[in-house]
Simulated assay, not measured.
Amino acid sequence: MSAPRKRRRGEDSDTRDQLIEATAELMLEEGYAGATTRRVAAKVGVNPALVYYYFPSLDDLFLAVFRKGAEANLERQRKALASENPMRALWETATDARGTALLMEFMALANHRKEIRTEIAAYAERYRESQLTALTVILRARGFDIDALSPAMMSVAISSLGATLVNESSLGITLGHRELAEFAEDFVRLFEGKPWTRAMLPPRPGVEDPA
């Protein structure tokens, strides 16, 4: 009788990644309660015992999913802030439906898992600190008064408004969304050197309002 074949390191990494991705998909499709060990294993096509080989508990699996998504979001934000049109890229990141939906599931899960709550708070601080530093540079470079238009306020506003649009849309709520999207578009235009087209806020100094 031959000895069991040892798993290769590459196979371990691939299987682990598949389990993480399957968990994320189940959370998006059915909520975090639907991401059980058995269902994750079935989605990948492996024995449930193999899930525990990689993740001793379901919380360990959830944390792995969150951390992978968090690192991806931080990298996406770094690229957005370094892009030619950082404000537009930030708004597109904030209104990403998949990422926002998954974060909402983790926030719901955090009500029952202290470790998840701690992880979300630590990630949010890293994300916002990075954004705040970059926004300060971006606003100053484009001639905005950061005392009147606080980078911290901008950071919270971008994240909050983006999440609101995505979450309400998923529920079928759309009242006011068009107006907010138009306002956001006009604000983004200022950072692209284009004229302000609405009268909700004064234009940046040096940019004429065609109205």
Results as ranks from 00 to 15, higher is better:
Asn73Lys: 13
Leu74Lys: 02
Glu75Gly: 10
Gln77Lys: 12
Arg78Cys: 11
Lys79Met: 12
Leu81Phe: 02
Leu81Val: 00
Ala82Glu: 14
Ala82Ile: 00
Ala82Leu: 09
Ser83Trp: 04
Asn85Cys: 04
Pro86Asp: 04
Arg88Thr: 08
Arg88His: 10
Arg88Ser: 10
Ala89Lys: 03
Leu90Asn: 02
Glu92Asn: 15
Thr93Asn: 05
Ala94Cys: 09
Ala94Val: 04
Ala97Asp: 06
Ala97Val: 12
Gly99Met: 03
Thr100Phe: 01
Thr100Lys: 00
Thr100His: 06
Thr100Val: 15
Ala101Glu: 03
Leu102Thr: 01
Glu105Val: 02
Phe106Gly: 03
Met107His: 03
Ala108Val: 08
Ala108Asn: 11
Ala110Cys: 07
Ala110Asp: 03
Ala110Thr: 07
His112Asn: 12
His112Trp: 10
Lys114Glu: 15
Glu115Cys: 00
Arg117Gln: 12
Arg117Tyr: 08
Arg117Cys: 06
Ile120Thr: 01
Ala121Cys: 01
Ala121Lys: 06
Ala122His: 07
Tyr123Phe: 15
Ala124Pro: 04
Glu125Ala: 15
Arg126Leu: 07
Tyr127Asn: 04
Arg128Asp: 13
Ser130Gln: 15
Leu132Tyr: 05
Leu132Gly: 05
Thr133Trp: 11
Ile138Phe: 09
Arg140Val: 03
Arg140Tyr: 05
Arg142Lys: 13
Arg142Tyr: 06
Phe144His: 01
Phe144Leu: 15
Asp145Cys: 03
Leu149Val: 13
Ser150Ala: 12
Pro151Leu: 05
Ala152Glu: 12
Met153Phe: 12
Ser155Thr: 08
Val156Glu: 15
Ser159Arg: 13
Leu161Gln: 10
Ala163Asn: 06
Thr164Ser: 08
Leu165Val: 07
Asn167Arg: 14
Ser169Met: 10
Ser170Gln: 15
